[in-house]
Design a protein around this nucleic acid. Structure first.
Lengths: 154, 154
DNA sequence: CGCTTGCTTCAAGTGCACTTGAAGGTCCTA
DNA sequence: TAGGACCTTCAAGTGCACTTGAAGCAAGCG
């Protein structure tokens, strides 16, 4: 059976910007990964990947002739993005909403942009808080280190 | 009944560096807050404060003559620090461990320092990831904004 | 042929961080 | 003295993000 490319390349502009950046284990065209391969590559567990698909966070996963999932590079890119969103603290439900917008196509570009802009603001706010926290930690670390040295000198 | 200062000021060096920084609703000496006052001030719910005390994350809260909690500025400072640690993603169990170290006094300075240094490293790593995420978000936002303008121009 | 490996679905369970409910005590005001 | 506001404890419930278990299918190997 020939290898089938899940992305017809010149299809509707689903989300071109997802396909940016990182390298893939296999080049486009040979990118048909089993669930355990994707689990190993992404660090997510196989049940989690199934669950992501079930709730609509990872839609349209291909299947092999006998019903097994075959993930593509597009899925890996999407999962990498999902991982980033998860790190920002975005709830899974919101990511599902975003995934649905992506599925609906170009008409949702505006809402998607708004969501990402809001997320961006939240991330920056979070980074500022973390920066402050680093300052607090530094102060405490200095205190403990100083006290330790003092008691050593005593 | 006279106001009782819960911190005898010249007592053992429990954690001097906790008392740093921010201002308090009431000055030391008049700092006896009810649970709802602390809830309003910290944003934590009253049940959460009780639960924090129960699990040992907020030890040694004073009680009034009839058994009601009376929090002090020391407690507010500690809660502010807990809030920071929570923002770093530290599990509550780890914070409880840290609280126990604080209770044990000076002999745990070294372990406390090590914990905070590790936390510091994790926070910096997290910030770097978030910085990368901002870059990814910017790229996508630009893409959506550009596509939007393009379709408007069409 | 039977065994192992790896996948499948569906349902139930887990861990964390709280939240909510029930029943009751204490103080202040009308 | 009755009501309301605020507190108490203890136990049970909730929401989220998975994780685990049970039962079964399909391909490859000895």
């Amino acid at each position: 059976m020939p290898v089938i490319d899940s992305t017809p390349v010149t299809s509707p502009p689903v989300d071109v910007c997802v396909a940016a950046g990182t390298e893939h284990p296999r080049p486009d065209g040979q990118d048909r990964y089993t669930i355990s391969e994707v689990a190993a590559y992404t660090g997510l567990s196989a049940p989690t990947l199934r669950w992501y698909e079930e709730i609509g966070l990872l839609p349209d996963v291909e299947r092999s002739h006998n019903g097994q999932r075959r993930f593509g590079n597009r899925d890996l890119d999407w999962l990498a993005f999902v991982r980033r969103l998860r790190l920002t603290g975005m709830p899974v439900a919101d990511m599902v909403h975003f995934a649905q917008l992506v599925k609906r196509g170009e008409e949702t570009f505006d809402e998607r942009r708004q969501i990402l802009e809001r997320t961006r603001r939240e991330v920056l706010a979070r980074m500022a808080e973390l920066q402050d926290t680093v300052a607090v930690l530094d102060a405490k670390i200095d205190f403990y280190a100083g006290a330790h040295q003092a008691s050593e000198r005593a």
